[in-house]
Design a binder for these strands. Sequence first.
DNA 1: GACGTTGATGGAAGCGTTTGCACAGGTTAC
DNA 2: GTAACCTGTGCAAACGCTTCCATCAACGTC
Lengths: 355, 355
Amino acid sequence: MTFGVRWGEAGGGGLSATIEDVADRAQVSVATVSRALRGLPNVAPSTRQRVLEAAEQLAYIADPSASRLASGHSRTIGLAVPMLGQWVYSKIFSGVEAVVAASGYDVLPFSMSGPGGVARFVEDLPFRKRVDGLLLVDAPLDPPQLERIRASEVAMVTVGLVAEDASSLVVDNVAAARLAVGHLTGLGHQRIALIGGVEDDPYRFSVPVDRYNGYLEALTTAGLQADPRLAVPGNFSLEGGAEAMHELLGLSEPPTAVFCCSDEMAIGAMQVARDAGLRVPEDLSIVGFDDHDVSEYLGLTTIRQDVIGLGERGAALLLARLGDPACGPVHERHPTRLVVRHTTGPPPAGLEYRW
Amino acid sequence: MTFGVRWGEAGGGGLSATIEDVADRAQVSVATVSRALRGLPNVAPSTRQRVLEAAEQLAYIADPSASRLASGHSRTIGLAVPMLGQWVYSKIFSGVEAVVAASGYDVLPFSMSGPGGVARFVEDLPFRKRVDGLLLVDAPLDPPQLERIRASEVAMVTVGLVAEDASSLVVDNVAAARLAVGHLTGLGHQRIALIGGVEDDPYRFSVPVDRYNGYLEALTTAGLQADPRLAVPGNFSLEGGAEAMHELLGLSEPPTAVFCCSDEMAIGAMQVARDAGLRVPEDLSIVGFDDHDVSEYLGLTTIRQDVIGLGERGAALLLARLGDPACGPVHERHPTRLVVRHTTGPPPAGLEYRW
DNA sequence: GACGTTGATGGAAGCGTTTGCACAGGTTAC
DNA sequence: GTAACCTGTGCAAACGCTTCCATCAACGTC
């Protein structure tokens, strides 16, 4: 047992006060301290006051490990994303962190891009015994994998994929892509390329697939035929977008417009196009996806989605679920919208009657 | 006590196995299980083997709360940054996470931009009792604040500021800014603006101040006189950079070159300049700072610093310190370099003899 | 005035680990 | 052949909380 007196009003210096120190100082039992500090009922106001003062003077905070062990709750939520450091996920992260921190929970990040990738994540379930809830973002999991995660018995909210008995938050990537490409066909473009995900993606992320399908649908709607040579992988990175654009420009019949599945790829593509002497949008139209921070300043026409909001909402949903496990899963669709800026326009006149 | 038999080879389904279940199954005491699983010495190879198998069959993992409580170590490091979601910090984060995850530690993020900001962070010390070590990034702390954090007795590594008895990682922002501005003076510019931090920054972040000083030094070296109207705040954001550029263009004698303290601000500035009909670099040269992902593709001349590496190195330093608390603090300076791309050139000829 | 009721409190048993200590048996050193 | 050591193991006491249960006083109620 430690002596309360060690904790001067300076509030620091040495070992940390325990609940017992507070109890001694407030002249009550540890049980009462625990109740008083957590705002539980059945504590006399005067007692609570005394406990609060004692805790304040000792600069006491409950040891989370002890508290977790005793209560069985970690007051922590896990956030698993494909890759920390990618723009979209860092924004989602900041949204999550803000909401979670405000509620007194901790957030524990997991990057599924580490060694072993998603498979390793599902194999190890590294969040086991450390989180109360898991926010799983854009993880392309098959049913057995989902089942394995579900068996770990943490509350789950998924973003970007739907899993029964977990709440989910999705954006309709198919519709959004259709919208973007429809914008191009509406302008009169007939030769429209797509810069998408990874070729033979081992992870089978759904985002690029959905956007690709939306692209196809929009072409069909416009009565156009898809040319497979116009759909090239861009790896969701600037470099990938640039390479893809190079490839497209090398075609015998290059596109008059490009739909890029992310703004990063669009930026890479745009730069290559300009380096090649093409004017955007006079010679080539470009549409992106995400509405990256810089897109507005680059004048990039794109599909806007509120990524920070996605993180905030996902976190809120998860916290609500933890607060009341009875409430069933909800499935929400988050809106996207087309933001027309200055990288899209009608196809070059000279080309219009080439076909 | 639970029966080992509940844990089929399926490895899941229901409550989680405890160390006691493993002990029962391996026919040893819990103490031996603990030692065997953690690779401690004085365990017979055959025993260890048996324990490992039992643990494997039960899909056992140690409960971190219990382990933390008993051992006094959380095997967690805290990462405190001014603002999650800002490009620089999300990159540092991803560097940290990679290193920390590989070593089996958890990382707990803190954003100092939340309610109350840095002051609140120092007041509450939210990482208390939850981390073994703290990686503190770009926090502008005064000595009493640093002292308060030090009193919380966590190992600390700082990035972007120097604190005695904590290891630190800094970049020489003064020299880097000098280099950037020296590049402009070398090209013949005489009217060089600076787009910097926040006016009367309540946080007193050192980064903008240092870069400003480097700017002044470079001007002096070139025999130029600083014009206070040419130094405007840009808030380290795209929007701020854009506004700052507007302000600069409104001057009776606008600059021929601008040094921006971050690439984001440079991008905003560049866009405004172009919208105003200025060609970059023919009419206006722009230098940034950071080497943002998109900078290469925008052709932005900038100061490159390896932010991911900063995170990785900081994490490694912290882990080393935790592994061997005896090892003294180290202070490292991380290199920066000027990357000349296509946004800088000589000042417009017509203007050279205006002054 | 005896009696359930309610509110405030304390005692004590966990929670699942780690770790200091004790101990048995087997070596090695003289 | 005894003393001094290792090695491998188990026992049990922490670690600092939460929470069930019992207790006790004060309060109407009939």
